[in-house]
Design a protein around this nucleic acid. Structure first.
Length: 498
RNA sequence: UCCUCGGUAGCUCAGGGGCAGAGCAAGCGACUGUUAAUCGCUGGGUCGUAGGUUCAAAUCCUACCCGGGGAGCCA
């Protein structure tokens, strides 16, 4: 058996492929089978004269997603996807598929999500899962090469780590238990045993969020490092993101092309240092005249674009009456695209003034909203690291900035192109008394943090760590508009099946 | 929880008081180079659910259910 991604090693030789029918066309005494086998897609050509009568019957009985084995000769052919095609000599049907619901046509999100178990076979989904795998492998490679030890934190926990988010509650032998929203506190304990560790596992948030950036179950990577301060933490986060970006570009070009990802944007990330600004500098930037002018300019740009595409639409509509059938289809498609873009522009007209207002009136001490993040990232081509945040809006375990009591040594990493926060991290508070006071101040139950405070009783050291959201990273690197396409079976509000 | 848009054939959608429609998919047929193939024919409907207004409701009104996008929260 040969795999499709190895066909170039078998040109002009006979091979046997095992897989599924991705698409099917017939033309009298020719049958064209686009066959997929998990490694790729290739076109198989069955000519009536080249196969036995029973094989010809088998070939003409095929339907989308039928499973089959094909034997034939590999020919280099530029007309065919992948640059090769198979001239078939034998066709063996494994199973004739029933009516396959996902046709090579457009479908709505709800329908595709209901058929997620089948949707995973489609090209773009296939490519995204391969990139996800590459990212996972790159993360392990990055940490393992630096002598980090991978460790698993518990999924059942007795408390909310930060107290703020809503958690999934379960019954744990008549005791309340919660699905972990982070493994961080446990990671700190393990770092005190091994120095450098990282966790890689699922986390759960019961927030009723319905946005393109949220799942109720998602995978998080949380390194924790003894004797690391905030700067070392930021260096590590930056090195890691640039490393995985470089690996994905190097090893998954084909998949990125299927996803129509602009690879040059990823190359910039891999090659350039990230900008680091403090929270206070970010606030100044938001309130600046430059930002206001930039947003005004955006409105002007939208107006011009609106004029241009409306004119284009008028022109192609005129052409429609006398156009050939294929051109009519093309025009219909373009008209739909223009309509969607105009809707987006309408939304921008409503949003941009609000963004401007939010940015101009931003008050030091507040957390950034979604629009503030968007505005901050408008002119960024690589991730932006925002550090030294007001203590009020951050978790109790973050270490105070010795140079400014109002601040904690936390850092958020924002991805470009509107993907938002992909990393949140900090240097951790290592003083026992300070932590005890803050647990009290945050109204958190002291008894469940007893073991955590022990870490400050027995050889407390400066240490730092961060959490990377895997799905947001996959969405960003793949250029996907929604995290639901970055994980095989997304769990989100109202979605438990399949 | 709130704001906003939507639910019509298997799928994507049009129809917005007066006969339930199109394209694709499915079935049958034609075609020796197709690329979402093309061409001809055929079958296919609880117009999200319940109630109301009307001579007449997919269309108007009310409530509810489901979904998309967003706010809050965050990775």
């Amino acid at each position: 058996m040969t795999y499709i991604n190895r066909l170039s090693e078998h040109v002009d030789k006979q091979v046997t492929l095992k897989g599924w029918v991705y698409n099917y066309r017939s033309s009298g005494s020719l049958v064209f089978i686009e066959m997929r086998d998990g490694t790729g897609i290739t076109q198989c050509v069955v000519a009536k004269d080249d196969v036995s009568e029973s094989d010809w019957e088998a070939a003409t009985s095929l339907r989308q997603e039928s499973s089959l084995e094909i034997t034939g000769t590999v020919k280099a052919d530029d007309r065919s996807i992948g640059g090769h095609e198979i001239h078939v000599s034998e066709v063996k049907v494994v199973q004739i598929a029933e009516d396959y619901p996902i046709t090579p046509k457009e479908h709505g999100v709800e329908f595709l999500m209901n058929n997620r178990h089948l949707w995973l076979r489609s090209q773009r989904q296939w490519a995204a899962m391969r990139v996800r795998n590459e990212i996972i492998f790159a993360i392990h490679t990055f940490f393992q090469e630096r002598n980090f030890v991978q460790m698993d934190s518990p999924i059942f926990t007795s408390n909310a780590a930060e107290g703020s988010t809503t958690l999934f509650e379960t019954d744990y032998f008549d005791e309340k238990a919660y699905l972990a929203q982070t493994g961080q506190l446990y990671g700190e304990a393990m770092a005190m045993a091994h120095g450098l560790i990282y966790t890689f596992g699922p986390t759960f948030r019961a927030e009723k969020s319905k946005t393109r950036r949220h799942l109720t179950e998602f995978w998080m990577i949380e390194p924790e490092m003894a004797y690391y301060d905030l700067d070392m933490n930021m260096d590590l986060a930056e090195d890691m993101i640039r490393f995985i970006t470089a690996k994905v570009v190097e090893k998954r070009k084909n998949e990125l092309e299927i996803l129509e990802r602009d690879i040059s944007k990823l190359e910039k990330v891999a090659e350039n240092p990230f900008q680091r600004i403090t929270y206070s500098e970010a606030v100044e930037q938001l309130k600046s005249k430059e930002t206001a002018d930039m947003l005004d300019q955006m409105i002007e740009d939208r107006k011009q674009e609106e004029k241009d595409i409306k004119q284009e639409r008028e022109e192609i509509k005129k052409e429609h009456g006398s156009a050939k059938k294929w051109r009519k289809k093309q025009i219909d498609q373009r008209v739909i695209e223009i309509g969607q873009r105009l809707d987006q522009i309408e939304e921008d007209y409503r949003n941009i003034p609000q963004w401007k207002e939010s940015a101009q009136n931003f008050e030091w001490g507040n957390d950034f909203g979604g629009s503030d993040e968007t505005v901050l990232m408008l002119q960024q081509e690589v991730p932006l690291m925002v550090h030294r945040w007001p203590a009020e809006i951050k978790a109790f375990y973050m270490k105070r900035d010795p140079e400014d009591e109002r601040l904690v040594l936390g850092v958020d990493v924002l991805a470009p192109e509107g993907y938002g926060e992909i990393i949140g991290g900090s240097q951790r508070e290592d003083d026992l008394e300070f932590l005890e006071n803050h647990i009290e101040k945050h109204d958190l139950p002291m008894d469940v943090f007893g073991w955590y405070l022990d870490l400050r009783r027995f050889g407390s050291v400066p240490h730092s760590g961060f959490g990377l959201g895997l799905e947001r990273t996959v969405a960003w690197l793949c250029g996907l508009s929604h995290v639901r396409e970055t994980i095989p079976f997304p769990r989100m509000m109202g979605r438990l099946r399949p």
